[in-house]
Design a protein around this nucleic acid. Structure first.
Lengths: 158, 158
DNA sequence: TATTGTTATACTCTATAACTATA
DNA sequence: TATAGTTATAGAGTATAACAATA
């Protein structure tokens, strides 16, 4: 039987990420690897703020869309309402978000970002923008724009 | 306090995937959404073969690179060796791979894809190619190639 | 002493079911 | 009767630590 081949011969490595050449042409594999890289990058960038990328997304949506319920927030971010509970608990504990009742429907919250939350959001944006710039360094500005455009169209279906 | 706004106004929806516009320009968010779509698509496409996308990756690498150890396979795919055990157990149970000892180093296996494995791999490739074509339908052929190129360069760092 | 494969264990992430308070 | 939020619980998925066999 054959011996394990030298993997270096059939991979391209850099920054700890390897792509088996048999999978290098599959969009799914490339997207999965990209996701791993982006996710790690984002959480590392936000670590000085003691903020997770999912919490950043919450602050972002709350700041941009205004007060809303946990249910609506979960739907917007694509996570279950039961999953939102712990996320909001953490953000409330850090005083970045406030839960008050929606007076029109007292079952639901009117979630709102606090002044501290807005401040952290601003800092997070700067950190993420810098990290994204580093991540996108291998691409020109036009190519980065095109990548965003292609991914958007891939997701939306046309 | 304000009432939850109409979410439809500030999202773009299709095929169940929504993109909050505050995050629509972040590469990380677009990549994460793309990954979710691709992963679901791939596993759905492979379901007739009772094969998971991770098992497909194993068959692909084993077929393309020849016999290798579980350790090396795990490194190639970016998963821990302890995680490989269950994956290989499942593939061996389905008779798609064989574990024989590497005579040069009897601690390690010489993992090999079986004839059945090659057959399943071929069918899986056809299913995935068809699914990928559907997924990439909103893009022209040249754009799909460019997307692959941009993602590869993003991962590799230049 | 180090490494391969294995197991037990734990940790993360997420969803389902059932409860409460409101509607 | 239905919905928002909560809790308990369970299921993936993955990683760490420790062990046996081999180097």
């Amino acid at each position: 039987m054959s011996v394990p081949p030298d993997t270096a011969a059939s991979e391209v490595k850099q920054e700890g990420v390897a792509i088996p050449e048999q999978l290098a042409d599959r969009i799914g594999f490339l997207v999965a690897k990209s996701h791993a890289v982006c996710h790690a990058m984002a959480n590392e960038a936000l670590s000085p703020l003691d903020l997770h990328i999912k919490e950043y997304a919450v602050l972002n949506v709350l700041h941009g869309m205004g007060a809303m319920s946990q249910q609506a927030l979960g739907e917007t971010l694509g996570v279950d309402r039961t999953t939102m509970v712990a996320v909001m608990d953490a953000l409330e504990r850090k005083r970045l978000v406030e839960r008050s009742r929606n007076p029109v429907d007292r079952r639901a919250y009117a979630l709102a970002i606090t002044d501290d939350g807005v401040d952290v959001l601003r800092r997070a944006r700067r950190l993420l923008t810098a990290a994204e710039r580093k991540l996108l360094a291998p691409l020109s500005s036009a190519e980065a724009d095109q990548l965003r455009d292609l991914l958007r169209r891939l997701i939306l279906g046309r």
